[in-house]
């Protein structure tokens, strides 16, 4: 187990290093670093002084070392637009994005798992066919357009839900959260559902495929031959086996959900990291872009690692093999 964990940690470290090189080349190689690191308002004298001060006349590898050293100290540059450290700016917006992403994941499992289970148990019923057709729609519908339609229906037409912002928030653990107030929840509902739509389809398909596969397995037939109630067969024997892939994929999708919240946050003006990054791109606020990218990379690596560990806990076969290794 420890060996396995160490190897995974080492791999994770490798990914972070590889991505930092990519970001570095992206920023310093493709783009003109002067544009990125120095305010466009600066005059020629200032620029040259800055180039020397920033070491931009040094060879590329030396610059990379310098970039990494700064990054390790938490210095990923200052935002031009806000004149604040980029890292701090992003960390401030992170709770809003995480709240949205987690709400979406919970919705995805809460809606997708029962529907997928039903569709898997009764594959030929009309309701199941409707569920599967719905899931193809969920895959096909572009998130942003669904968001617009939701706003049109629930905010403009029916007037039930607010169309933008986080609404009232309450403090918990020193951070402001929307889900703790009724008003905040109303604001959270549409964006969370919008972001969840793709994952709901994914969970439905995974669950259905898993159920159909499990139902053909001898162990399910044996469980039925033992005279267990259909409920116990479904919710213990089938579900426990399906949870492994569903949890893995859902967990792995958390990163994708955070990334995709860029779109939802833009549609619903949700003040998270995604909205910040789109605003920064439009303002050419490149230090923020770089900082965002590095944070996302780190987040991904951590999520992948956690999912692997969770997977090990859930599946006794993997657990034992890990111990033996």
């Amino acid at each position: 187990m420890t060996v396995y964990l160490l190897r995974r940690l080492f791999q994770a470290f490798g990914v972070v290093v590889a991505m930092s090189v990519l970001v570095f080349v992206g920023v310093y190689g493709i783009g003109n670093p002067v544009d990125i690191l120095i305010s466009p308002d600066a005059d020629q004298m200032e620029r040259e002084r800055a180039i020397r001060a920033l070491g931009l006349d040094r060879p590329l590898w030396e610059q990379y070392v310098w970039f990494v050293a700064n990054a390790l100290q938490g210095d990923l540059g200052r935002s031009f637009a806000y004149n604040e450290p980029a890292l701090q700016l992003i960390l401030q917006r992170m709770p809003a994005t995480l709240e949205l992403a987690f709400a979406a994941m919970i919705l995805a499992v809460a809606i997708g798992l029962p529907l997928g289970l039903y569709a898997g148990l009764h594959p030929h019923s009309p309701a199941s066919k409707a569920i599967m057709a719905g899931s193809i729609l969920g895959f096909s519908l572009p998130t942003f357009w669904v968001g617009l339609m939701l706003i049109m229906l629930f905010a403009v037409h029916l007037g039930w839900l607010p169309s933008n912002g986080r609404g009232a928030t309450a403090e918990f653990l020193g951070v402001q959260w929307s889900f703790l107030t009724a008003n905040g929840l109303a604001h959270l509902a549409m964006p969370a559902f919008n972001l969840a739509l793709f994952k709901i389809s994914l969970v439905i398909r995974l669950t259905r495929a898993g159920v159909r596969e499990a139902m053909l397995m001898d162990y399910v037939k044996f469980a039925r031959a033992k005279g267990l109630s259909p409920r116990r067969v479904t919710f213990v024997h089938v579900l426990k086996n399906i949870l492994i892939p569903v949890v893995t994929v859902t967990g792995l999708e958390l990163g994708g959900t955070i990334a995709f919240s860029v779109v939802t946050e833009t549609v619903f003006s949700w003040p998270g990291m995604g909205k910040l990054i789109i605003d920064s791109i439009n303002r050419l606020d490149r230090p923020v872009m770089v900082a965002y990218l590095m944070i996302i990379v780190l987040m991904f690596v951590v999520i992948n690692l956690l999912v692997d560990i969770l997977y090990t806990v859930l599946d006794p076969r993997v657990r034992i093999e890990g111990k033996a290794a």
Partner: peptide
């Protein structure tokens, strides 16, 4: 593997942000 471990939207966003 590296490519697939990052969501498409993010990678595309960054490339277009720089290009």
């Amino acid at each position: 593997d590296l490519q697939l471990s990052f969501p498409a939207i993010l990678v595309a966003l960054m490339i277009l942000a720089f290009l």
